[in-house]
C-alpha cells in the first residue's frame, strides 16, 4: 500500500503547489485583462485559453521538447547542474501550471470585471493609491473568484493524466500521480486497488463540483 500512499502524496503536493503558484500568476493577468479593452487583450485571452482546447498530448509533447536536454531553455539551467526538467517534480509543476492556467485566470478575471468602476471611483475620491485600492478593495471584493479558481485548479490538477504521462516517467514518490497509478493498476489487472483509487477520485471530484455549485448559490443569494 505504500506506493498508493506515495502516489496520493505526490498528487496532493502537486495540486497544492500548482494552485498556490497559479493564484499568484493569474492575479495580475486576470486584473490586467479585466481593466483593459484592446485587440491585444483578445490575443492574450485566446493564448491563455489554449490549454482548454489543446489535447494534453500537444502540451505534453511541447513540454517534453522544451524541457529536454537539447532545448535552448535548458541551456540556461545547465550551469546549475540541471540537464532536463522532464521526469522531475518541478517539471510536473510547470506542466500543471500551463495546463490549468485558464481555470485560474477566467474566474479571477470575471470576479474583477463584475466589480465595475464604482468601487474604484469611490476609493479614488478617498485618496487611496491604486496599489492600496487593489489590495484593500479589489482583492477582498473578488474573493469568490479566487476561491473558485483555487478549487478548479486543484481539482483539474488532480484530474491531470496526459501531460504527466508524457513528461513524468512514473517515478514513485516523485512523478507518479494517482491517475498514472490507476492506469498502471489497470494494466496490471490489479482491479481491487484500481477500484479503491478510482472510487476515491470519483468522490473527490463530486465533492469539489458540489462545493463549487454551493458557493455559487450562496453568493448569488447574497447579492440578489
Amino acid at each position: 500500500m505504500t506506493d498508493l500512499a506515495s502516489a496520493l502524496h505526490v498528487t496532493v503536493l502537486l495540486a497544492t503547489v500548482t494552485t498556490l503558484s497559479l493564484l499568484v500568476i493569474a492575479t495580475p493577468i486576470g486584473w490586467w485583462l479585466s481593466r483593459n479593452r484592446s485587440l491585444f487583450k483578445d490575443i492574450v485571452t485566446a493564448v491563455v485559453a489554449l490549454p482548454i482546447v489543446l489535447p494534453p498530448t500537444v502540451l505534453g509533447f511541447y513540454l517534453l521538447v522544451a524541457m529536454g536536454p537539447k532545448s535552448p531553455l535548458m541551456d540556461l539551467l545547465h550551469p546549475f547542474g540541471i540537464r532536463t526538467l522532464n521526469f522531475s517534480f518541478a517539471g510536473l509543476v510547470i506542466g500543471s501550471i500551463i495546463y490549468s492556467l485558464p481555470f485560474a485566470i477566467q474566474p479571477i478575471r470575471n470576479a474583477f470585471e463584475s466589480l465595475g468602476q464604482r468601487p474604484f471611483d469611490v476609493a479614488a475620491t478617498l485618496r487611496a493609491t491604486p496599489l492600496d485600492t487593489f489590495f484593500t478593495v479589489a482583492l477582498p471584493m473578488a474573493r469568490k473568484g479566487f476561491l473558485t479558481a483555487a478549487l478548479l485548479v486543484f481539482a483539474h490538477t488532480v484530474g491531470e493524466f496526459g501531460v504527466v504521462l508524457m513528461i513524468g516517467g512514473a517515478i514513485p514518490g516523485k512523478t507518479e500521480v494517482v491517475s498514472i497509478r490507476i492506469w498502471q493498476l489497470v494494466e496490471q489487472l490489479d482491479w481491487p486497488n484500481a477500484h479503491r483509487l478510482a472510487g476515491g477520485l470519483l468522490i473527490f471530484a463530486f465533492i469539489v463540483l458540489l462545493s463549487l455549485l454551493l458557493i455559487d448559490r450562496r453568493w448569488s443569494q447574497r447579492h440578489d
Partner: peptide
C-alpha cells in the same frame, strides 16, 4: 508506458 515511449525518452536525450 510502452517500449515505444521508452525509446522516445532516450532518443530525445531526456
Amino acid at each position: 508506458s510502452s517500449i515505444a515511449q521508452t525509446y522516445g525518452f532516450i532518443d530525445s536525450g531526456s
